[in-house]
C-alpha cells in the first residue's frame, strides 16, 4: 500500500515536468507579453527592449524554463504579469473554491448516483430500474452550467435559501461554506451522478453474477448480508475507478459553473489570465489543475486499495 503510494508520487515527477514544459513552451508563443501591462499603451520600442532585457525575456526559452523550474521546485511558480502577487499565492487562494466545487460535486454524485445505481442493479428489469436508467441517461446529457443557471433562480434569488453568489471558506463557517457551494455542487453532481449510477448498476449486476455471491448464499446468509457485505464492497471497485475518471470532468465543470456564481476559482483565474495574457498565471493554473487531478486520483487509488486487497498487497 505504502509502496503503491510512493511509486505513484514518484510517478508524478516526470508527469509534471512534461506538463510544465509543454505549457511553458506553448504559452510563450502567445503574441504580446508582460511588457504591455507594465509599460502601458504609450511605451517606446527602446523601453520595450530594455524591460525585456531586465526581465530576462530575451533569453532562450530553455533558459527561461530552467529558471522557472528552479523556482518552481522551491514552491515559487513565478510572479503575476501585472503585480507582485505570487502565482503560488493566487493559485492557493483560489484552490479552496475549485477543490470545494470538485469535491462537492463528487459528493453529490456519490450521494445520488451510488444508491440509485445499487437499487436499480438489485431490482434489475423493474420499472424503477428502467426509470432510473432513463433518468440517469438524461441526467448525463444535461449541461451542468445550464442546470446551475436554472437552479440559482429559485434557490438563490426567489427563496434565497442559499447565497446566489460568493464563496465562504470552510475555516470561517462550515454551514455557510456548505450553503455557498450547494447549488454549484448539485449542478456539477447531477451529470456525474448519472454516470456513476449507470456504472454502479452495471457493477452490481455484474457482481451478483459472480461465483462468490452464490457461495455466500449457499452459506445461508440473508439477502441483506449478501447484498450489502459481499456485493457492495466488490461492486465498489469499478465504481471507485469511475469516480476517478469523473474528477477531470468535474474539475472542468467547476471552471464553468463558478462563473455563474461569481466564484473565484481556477476558472476565473484561467479566463482572466487568458484575457490579460497573464501567462505565468496561466502556467500556474494548469500545473495546479494537473496536480489536483492527480492527487485526487491518488486518493481514489487509496480508496481502491481499501476495497481491493489485491492492490494493497502487491
Amino acid at each position: 500500500m505504502i509502496q503503491l503510494l510512493v511509486s505513484r508520487i514518484i510517478g508524478l515527477v516526470p508527469l509534471l515536468l512534461i506538463v510544465s514544459f509543454l505549457t511553458f513552451g506553448m504559452l510563450h508563443m502567445v503574441p504580446g507579453d508582460v511588457r504591455d501591462r507594465i509599460l502601458g499603451t504609450d511605451a517606446t520600442a527602446e523601453q520595450y527592449e530594455a524591460l525585456g532585457e531586465k526581465l530576462g525575456l530575451n533569453d532562450p526559452i530553455v533558459v527561461q524554463y530552467a529558471r522557472w523550474l528552479f523556482n518552481a521546485v522551491q514552491g515559487d511558480l513565478g510572479t503575476s504579469a501585472y503585480n507582485s502577487q505570487k502565482v503560488t499565492d493566487a493559485v492557493l487562494d483560489t484552490l479552496p473554491v475549485t477543490l470545494s466545487l470538485t469535491l462537492g460535486g463528487m459528493f453529490v454524485a456519490i450521494l445520488i448516483g451510488v444508491p440509485a445505481g445499487v437499487y436499480a442493479g438489485l431490482h434489475r428489469g423493474s420499472y424503477i430500474d428502467r426509470a432510473a436508467v432513463l433518468i440517469a441517461t438524461i441526467g448525463q446529457s444535461l449541461p451542468n452550467f445550464w442546470v446551475a443557471m436554472l437552479l440559482v433562480i429559485p434557490l438563490g434569488l426567489i427563496w434565497q435559501v442559499v447565497p446566489a453568489t460568493g464563496f465562504v471558506s470552510p475555516s470561517d463557517s462550515i454551514t455557510e461554506w456548505i450553503k455557498s457551494i450547494t447549488v454549484a455542487s448539485i449542478a456539477l453532481g447531477t451529470s456525474a451522478s448519472a454516470a456513476l449510477a449507470r456504472q454502479t448498476r452495471g457493477a452490481i449486476i455484474d457482481v451478483l453474477r459472480q461465483d462468490y455471491i452464490r457461495t455466500a448464499r449457499s452459506k445461508g446468509l440473508s439477502r441483506e448480508v449478501v447484498t450489502f457485505k459481499h456485493a457492495l464492497k466488490n461492486a465498489s471497485v469499478p465504481v471507485i475507478t469511475t469516480i476517478g475518471f469523473q474528477v477531470n470532468g468535474l474539475l472542468g465543470g467547476a471552471l464553468i459553473v463558478e462563473q455563474i456564481f461569481g466564484l473565484h476559482g481556477f476558472g476565473s483565474l484561467a479566463i482572466d489570465a487568458v484575457r490579460t495574457q497573464n501567462m505565468p498565471m496561466m502556467q500556474g493554473v494548469v500545473i495546479m489543475g494537473t496536480l489536483v487531478i492527480v492527487l485526487v486520483n491518488i486518493g481514489v487509488d487509496i480508496a481502491y486499495g481499501f476495497v481491493n486487497p489485491k492492490v494493497r498487497s502487491s
Binding site: V152, G156, L157, Q160, P163, A164, T165, G166, Q259, I260, F261, G262, H264, S268, D272
Partner: peptide, 18 residues
C-alpha cells in the same frame, strides 16, 4: 469590495442582498 466580474453575478448578489 467584492470582485464579481460578471454583471449578472453582480445583479444576483445585489438582489439577494449580498
Amino acid at each position: 469590495i467584492r470582485l464579481l466580474k460578471d454583471s449578472r453575478a453582480r445583479l444576483n448578489a445585489l438582489v439577494s442582498g449580498q
